[in-house]
Deep mutational scan, measured.
Amino acid sequence: KKYKVVEVKENKDGTVELVVENENGEKKKITLSKEELDKLKAGDTVELK
């Protein structure tokens, strides 16, 4: 499934919390490390299994 990044929030521990949404409007929260996030920004599309 493809999800669009709608919100990006940095946590104090250096991880980043993303809120992503698919075309049905379903939202998910995922947490990434700073390194994983470096290639993402709001409006990008991510694929989740």
Rank of each mutant, 00 (worst) to 15 (best):
V19H: 06
L37G: 15
K1P: 01
E23V: 07
N24H: 11
T15P: 01
N11L: 10
E7I: 09
T45S: 04
G25Y: 04
Y3S: 00
K1V: 12
G25V: 00
E47K: 04
E36I: 12
S33R: 15
V8C: 14
L40H: 07
K27L: 13
L18D: 00
E47S: 06
V46Q: 03
Y3N: 00
K49Q: 15
K27T: 10
K29H: 13
L40P: 13
K9G: 05
L40I: 14
K4P: 00
K39I: 07
N22E: 07
G25C: 07
A42K: 08
T15V: 04
K39S: 11
K27Q: 12
E36R: 13
K12F: 10
K1Q: 10
K28Q: 11
D44R: 03
L48D: 12
K39D: 14
K4V: 06
K2Y: 10
K12E: 08
E36M: 11
I30H: 03
K27V: 09
V20M: 07
I30C: 11
E21C: 08
L40A: 08
V20D: 00
V16F: 13
T45L: 13
K9A: 07
K2L: 12
E10D: 12
E7H: 08
G43K: 03
E17L: 11
V5N: 01
L32P: 01
N24M: 13
N24S: 10
Y3D: 00
I30D: 00
K28Y: 15
V6G: 01
E35W: 15
E21H: 03
L32H: 01
K1R: 13
L32W: 14
K4T: 06
E26F: 13
E21P: 00
G43F: 03
K4D: 01
E7K: 07
G14L: 02
E35H: 14
V20T: 02
K2F: 11
D44Y: 02
L32G: 13
L18Q: 00
N11T: 08
N24A: 13
L18T: 01
V8R: 04
E47N: 10
V6P: 00
V19P: 00
D38M: 14
N22I: 05
V5P: 00
L48E: 10
K39E: 13
E35N: 14
G43N: 08
V5E: 00
K9Y: 12
D38Q: 10
K2D: 01
V46M: 04
K12A: 08
D38I: 10
A42C: 12
V20Y: 10
E36G: 15
V20K: 00
S33P: 13
G14N: 04
T31L: 10
L40S: 05
N11E: 05
G25K: 04
D38P: 15
I30V: 10
K1S: 09
K1M: 13
D38W: 12
E10P: 06
K41V: 10
V46Y: 02
D13L: 02
V8A: 06
K29W: 15
K1Y: 10
L18V: 11
N24W: 13
L32N: 01
T31S: 07
T31A: 04
V19R: 04
L40K: 04
K4Q: 02
K49R: 08
K29A: 12
E35L: 13
V8N: 01
K49W: 04
D13C: 10
N11D: 04
T45K: 06
V8F: 11
L18F: 04
N24L: 11
K9I: 10
L48K: 09
V6F: 08
E17N: 07
G14S: 02
G43V: 04
K34F: 11
E47M: 05
E47P: 02
L48G: 07
E26M: 09
D44H: 05
G25H: 06
V8S: 04
T31W: 14
Y3M: 02
T15D: 04
E26D: 09
E10T: 09
E36Y: 14
E21Y: 06
V19M: 08
N22D: 13
T45P: 02
E47W: 06
A42E: 11
G43H: 03
V19G: 01
V8Q: 04
T15S: 06
V19I: 09
E23S: 07
K34Y: 12
E26I: 09
